[in-house]
Amino acid sequence: MTSSVGKRIEEARKGRKLTQKELANMVGMSQQAFAALEKRDTAPKKLYEISEALGVSAEYLRTGKESNASHIAVARPAENSFTCEEVEEIIPIALERTVVALTKQLAQNGERLDLYKHQNLISEFLSASVAVELSGDYELITRAFERLKATK
Rank of each mutant, 00 (worst) to 15 (best):
M1G: 13
T2P: 14
K7I: 00
K7E: 09
K7D: 05
I9G: 09
E10F: 05
E11W: 01
E11R: 13
A12I: 03
A12M: 04
R13N: 01
T19I: 00
Q20F: 13
Q20S: 13
A24N: 02
M26W: 10
V27N: 04
G28E: 06
S30L: 10
S30V: 06
S30P: 02
Q31F: 05
A33K: 00
F34V: 08
A36D: 12
L37I: 14
E38T: 06
R40M: 09
P44R: 04
K46N: 03
K46P: 00
L47W: 02
L47S: 02
S51L: 00
A53G: 08
G55S: 01
A58Y: 07
E59P: 05
E59D: 10
K65H: 11
S67H: 00
A69T: 14
A69S: 13
S70L: 02
S70A: 02
H71F: 11
V74G: 10
A78V: 12
E79L: 07
E79P: 02
N80P: 00
F82N: 01
C84G: 00
E86H: 04
V87G: 10
R97V: 00
R97T: 07
T98A: 01
V99R: 08
V100M: 07
K104P: 02
L106F: 11
A107S: 10
L113K: 14
D114S: 01
L115T: 15
L115I: 14
L115C: 14
H118L: 12
H118V: 10
Q119E: 15
F125W: 07
L126W: 12
S127H: 10
V130L: 15
V132Y: 08
V132M: 06
V132T: 13
L134C: 06
L134H: 08
S135R: 10
D137I: 04
D137A: 03
D137Y: 05
E139N: 15
E139M: 13
I141L: 11
F145D: 10
E146N: 13
R147K: 13
L148Q: 11
L148A: 00
K149G: 03
